[in-house]
Nucleic acid binder design. Structure first.
Lengths: 206, 206
DNA sequence: GTCTATACTACGATAGAC
DNA sequence: GTCTATCGTAGTATAGAC
């Protein structure tokens, strides 16, 4: 119980302020326990940090599980079906980027992207790899004119459009001249994302 | 001279390890000077941090100045001309995201996006606003079917495709199964980015 | 298991010599 | 202007009571 509270508080604090920016005393205080319980349960501050990576990966996987399961059997999908699945997957991913819960996760993940530690491996293998490979497989079904590497590049670009909703949030708000994203603006962004993805995925006439 | 060395070292250290993750002693050591010179020149650690924000904004502006100047007079551009300018601007921005120098900058900027301090204002006003507004203006010329808010959303999505090249670098490398991005993969990504942007910007038949 | 108390290190800021 | 020396604070980790 204390263990779970410590983990939740650690996700929040590490996500928002980074490893060095967070003190174990803060996390312990937010969990209503003593700092030494971190050593007891996780061995060290670093041990807690790695546990947070696993925790985040598990939460993301759970959140995307439905959308990924629907896209699991892509071997015999028609291009049109693959596009439908991709649009649904993009929408699911983008909604996660818009959800408040992803703020702390993304802070954690983005730091690991720029300065990968052992935690990045856990994040990628635990949550991101599955989504990336599913994307690539679906794109290959949708755009039969692309080879494997082109499909991977396309997956990167599609994901980037959703990623900026979280990672560039402050700039997005400035571009729309709002303090926080309201429902109407979120809907507008999701609609544009869908339209763009459709443009990209529709196979071009030679 | 010491001042410039401190600033350069601070960009690197703050960018890679964040404000709390960087000690003033580290920065001073990397600059070959004493820690107390930070207090002398910048007043405090925070003063140095804000100076770094201005420094980064200036460097980005300088780097994008040519591409932005070429797109300055958009009032009478035809849709085809606007698309050409946008593709050039996208390419310029994406190449900055691929350049090694942007690693430290982006670390700094991304932290500010998620946890904006006074430094974010300086970054946005000093470098990002100009690019964002230029993007929106050009998109409105290229896609006459979009209203202002739709054009802003489209700008966000276009920038996201380039942003992921830096912010999601570790994942991009994993998706391509490489340690670092080689020239061939970079060319592939730039090519896909251009193709996607073209798909998105080509006005759809009603 | 969870707490209090404490050892040890590193931090930012400042004072003062030169 | 740039250095060395030092102060006060806050950090992680550990030991030991309960």
């Amino acid at each position: 119980m204390v263990l779970a509270r410590l983990l939740d508080a650690a996700v929040e604090h590490f996500g928002r302020k980074g490893f060095e920016g967070t003190s174990t005393r803060e996390i312990a205080a937010a969990s209503g326990t003593a700092m030494s319980s971190i050593t007891y349960h996780f061995g060290s501050k670093e041990g807690l940090y790695l546990a947070v990576a696993d925790h985040i990966a598990a939460q993301i996987s759970a959140r995307q599980a439905d959308a990924l399961k629907a896209a699991r059997d892509t071997a015999d999908a028609s291009p049109a079906q693959a596009i439908d699945m991709l649009l649904a997957l993009m929408d699911s991913f983008a909604r996660m980027m818009l959800a408040p819960a992803s703020a702390a996760w993304s802070g954690f993940i983005v730091r690991e992207q720029q300065n990968p530690t052992a935690a990045f491996e856990r994040l990628y293998e635990g949550a991101m790899k599955d989504m990336a490979e599913t994307f690539v497989a679906l794109i290959l079904r949708a755009r039969t004119d692309l080879d494997d590497r082109e499909a991977r590049a396309t997956a990167v670009m599609l994901l980037g459009q959703a990623l900026i909703l979280r990672v560039g949030r402050a700039s997005v708000c400035r571009i729309f001249d709002v303090e926080t994203l309201d429902a109407a603006t979120e809907a507008l962004l999701l609609g544009r994302l869908r339209a763009n993805a459709l443009s990209i995925l529709s196979e071009k006439p030679a």
